[in-house]
Amino acid sequence: MDSFLGAQLKLMPEMSDLLQKRYRILQTIQLTKGIGRRVLGEQLSLTERETRKELDALRTQGLIEVSREGASITAEGNEVLTELKEVVRLWSGRSQMELMLKKYLNIKDVIIVPGNVDNDTNTSMLLSQEAAKYLESILLNEHIIAVTGGSTIASISHAMTESSRWKDLLFIAARGGVGKDVRLQANTIASLFASKMNGSYRTLYIPDRLSEEAYMTMKKEPFIQEMMDLYERTNIIIHGIGDALEMAKRRNSSDEEIELLRSRGAVSESFGYYFNNQGEAVHHIRTIGVQLNQLQHIEHLLAVAGGAKKANALISYFKQAPLQTVLVTDEGAANEMMKVIPKNI
């Protein structure tokens, strides 16, 4: 930690808690755009008196405005959030957790946002914003970007800055459809990214699971072979990581298959592969899409998943994840993962 910041904390240790509290209030107001005092207090577990006091302080400093529609952030408030971001990361301990998790999971980087998606919808927005920011930092012209499905990945497309500065970006579906909600399938999400980033997209309109006969037949189709070639040339993959049994239920797996997953100790799922506590693939859905062995040569892998409930799934998946993976997660998942990290790491 910076020596000046360290000295400040020794002199006034209560300053850290107050700064983090006001920063989180300001951040929540920025995300929600017109939030009422009661709802704000409920989201941040503050009493009505405490909420009123902090809102008055922020308004006096010109960081927020309060109207009938609720509290909204000012331009100066936005500047303060930007300037204090790194300080708050240091004082909150997230910076140190990121370094420890990066080493423990043996991956390129870990980015942790405040909160827990299990009980705070604003945290989902923060996950999306950080993932979008990272993606924008690595994008180059003519990149091929494969995306998986799910609400988390879909929300990243909404958080991207609409721009025409990139040329010839191609977004492709990393697999066929999963679940009944078309809006959250990889095909739709690829089109959303392309629309936002002035790019094009390619879809993969086939079932998520295929019989062996259908699988062998589909592999011979020219458009499938073309997609497989695109996967080999993909520069970036954006994907989620799920709880094994939860994902199996979303796929309407049979009772027999779910029991098979239980018996084999399946904990996590990604790309249609189910992994146990040791990171070993114990089951695989027969499907057309990105295959596990293709991940090793992908330049950038961006994994986005949060929530304390996903901690075990994350640890399971990262037992075998490629080194070039960057994980964007939240404090809920990070705090749970920290419980199993050796103290001498």
Rank of each mutant, 00 (worst) to 15 (best):
V110W: 00
D109E: 14
Y104I: 02
E98K: 00
S92L: 09
R94I: 13
L81G: 05
S124M: 05
L84G: 01
E98V: 06
G115M: 06
E98A: 12
L81Y: 10
S95Y: 05
V80R: 02
G115H: 02
N119L: 02
K102L: 05
T121G: 04
N119E: 13
V80Y: 01
M97Q: 12
M97I: 09
V87L: 13
R94C: 10
D118S: 03
T82Y: 14
K85C: 01
M97E: 08
I111F: 15
L90F: 06
V88F: 14
E79L: 15
K102W: 04
L105A: 00
V113K: 02
L81M: 07
S95G: 10
G93L: 12
N106P: 09
K102I: 01
V117Y: 13
S95P: 00
E83Q: 08
V117R: 14
M100G: 00
R89L: 09
V110Y: 01
V88W: 14
D118N: 13
G93P: 05
G115N: 07
D118V: 08
K103D: 14
S124L: 08
S95A: 14
T123A: 03
L101W: 03
Q96R: 15
V87S: 07
L99P: 10
T121Q: 12
T121I: 12
S95C: 06
N119G: 05
D118R: 01
S95L: 13
D109L: 04
G115R: 00
W91Y: 01
N116S: 12
N119K: 00
Y104W: 13
E79C: 03
G77L: 06
P114D: 00
D118K: 01
E86Q: 15
T123M: 00
R94Q: 10
I112Q: 06
L105D: 07
W91S: 10
E83C: 02
S92H: 07
V88R: 01
G77W: 07
L105W: 08
T123S: 08
I112K: 04
L81A: 00
G77Y: 03
Q96H: 10
G77E: 06
N106S: 11
L101I: 03
L101M: 14
L84Q: 09
N119H: 00
T123G: 01
S95I: 04
K103L: 13
R89D: 01
M100Y: 11
I107H: 13
K108C: 10
E98D: 11
N106W: 08
S95V: 07
L99M: 14
V117T: 15
D109K: 04
S92T: 14
D118E: 05
S95R: 15
M97K: 10
L99Y: 15
V80T: 02
K102M: 02
N78D: 13
K103R: 15
L105E: 09
W91A: 15
L84M: 15
V87K: 02
D109V: 09
Y104P: 12
E83A: 05
K103S: 14
S95T: 12
N78R: 08
I112P: 01
D118M: 02
L99Q: 15
V88S: 01
N78M: 11
G115S: 08
D109H: 03
D120L: 06
T121M: 05
Y104H: 15
R89M: 08
V87M: 12
M100R: 15
R94S: 11
Q96N: 04
N119D: 12
E79N: 10
D109C: 06
V80G: 02
